[in-house]
Nucleic acid binder design. Structure first.
Length: 342
DNA sequence: AATCTGGGCAACCGCCTGTCT
DNA sequence: GAGACAGGCGGTTGCCCAGAT
């Protein structure tokens, strides 16, 4: 039997190669782990995900205090953390960093965010550079949960920072409509067109009766025409209230054009916390079934209301294809002159 | 008191971009 | 120029909690 003999220098080379291989494998293995986001495989490998414990936070803080921010991919192992490098970086930059400012946003900060967002859009990291101590994640969350809604309630489109031009968006405003926002709403071009249509409607009344319509006459017409108001409480228990019977009365000028919404009961607040007031939609007063009320939506009036002059509006209103237009029915069913005679 | 619902927010996910080799 | 890597970014998810029912 022949003995296997390996020369000493071959053993040395073998040792060096094996050491190099193990180092390369170590580096490769760690990079593969920390490059990726946490996944099922990471859980299989014992890498934790989910909320950080105070102990983990302390380990991360201690390590960075003692060693500074080195490579995130190597940090978890060195710091004794069962996390991926990415998770550590996010935890540090979004929460543990000592220069992070906690607490509510100041009015100045809010205004800065709104101003910058109008210029930069959803570039949260760029916005964050202008707000020391605030992270992009924090600003993004604050925008999505507070500022965006506030702009909507003011009749401002949070994407364009201009008055809302999407009529359906306008009709689906969130609750808490406040009189302080009414000016914005009433200056909205969509509502301008709405009032133009109303003006046209009332002009026809004048043509028909040779006299200005009384407020009662207008209300009489609108009660049969307008969609019932849908009043909800925290998005639940939607109830139907007929227009003009909910305590919040539209204010008409002498031509019957809606100028605003009056409220004598709630100290200027159009809707209290549990009530949502929706501007009446120009649709037939077909009250949806109770079971359908949540899914009930006004037709798309963007196109109809995008017209800028009475002629266009008139054309849309009287278009045979515009079957959803309530005005056609109004004129057909009322004693108003036929469209062809105008 | 129990349950339901929605808001707030930390954390995750996956894509993108800049840098290096 | 191409490919790989490291970190950044924005959108989304899921958990927790408070308030409503």
């Amino acid at each position: 039997m022949q003995d296997i003999y390996i020369k000493p220098y071959n053993l040395i080379i073998l040792h060096i190669v094996s050491q190099l291989l193990s180092v390369l494998l170590y580096i490769f293995f760690n990079r593969q782990i920390e490059m990726r986001s946490p996944s099922n495989r990471d859980i299989d490998l014992g890498l934790k995900k989910g909320p950080w414990t105070p102990e983990e936070d302390q380990k991360l803080i201690d390590y960075i205090h003692n060693h500074g921010q080195c490579s995130w991919q190597l940090l978890p192992k060195k710091a004794g953390l069962n996390r991926c490098g990415k998770s550590c970086r996010l935890r540090w930059t979004n929460y543990l960093r000592p220069d992070i400012k906690r607490g509510d946003f100041s009015p100045d900060e809010e205004q800065t965010i709104i101003d910058l967002h109008s210029v930069l859009g959803n570039k949260w990291s760029m916005i964050a550079t202008r707000l020391p101590g605030r992270t992009d994640n924090e600003i993004k969350n604050f925008w999505n949960t507070h500022l965006r809604k506030r702009l909507l309630q003011s009749g401002i489109d949070p994407k364009t920072h201009k008055p809302i031009t999407d009529f359906n968006l306008l009709l689906n405003l969130p609750p808490m409509l406040h009189t302080s926002n009414l000016n914005n709403l009433m200056n909205n071009p969509i509502l301008e067109n709405l009032t133009k249509i109303q003006l046209l409607f009332n002009t026809l009344q004048v043509l028909n009766s040779n006299s200005l319509p009384t407020l009662n006459q207008i209300e009489g017409h609108f009660n049969g025409i307008l969609n019932p108001l849908q009043v909800s409480s925290m998005g639940r228990n939607v109830e139907t209230i007929e227009p003009f019977s909910c305590g919040y009365q539209p204010i008409f000028d002498t031509f019957g054009t809606i100028q605003g919404l009056s409220d004598s009961e709630n100290n200027g607040i159009i809707s209290n916390k549990s009530k949502a007031y929706k501007l009446p939609a120009l649709v037939n007063s077909t009250t949806p079934e109770a079971s359908d009320i949540n899914s009930f939506k006004a037709p798309d009036y963007n196109e109809l209301l995008s017209s800028n002059n009475y002629g266009d509006i008139w054309g849309e209103i009287m278009d045979d294809q515009a079957s959803s237009s309530c005005w056609k029915d109004v004129f057909n069913e009322s004693s108003f002159p036929a469209a062809s005679s105008l």
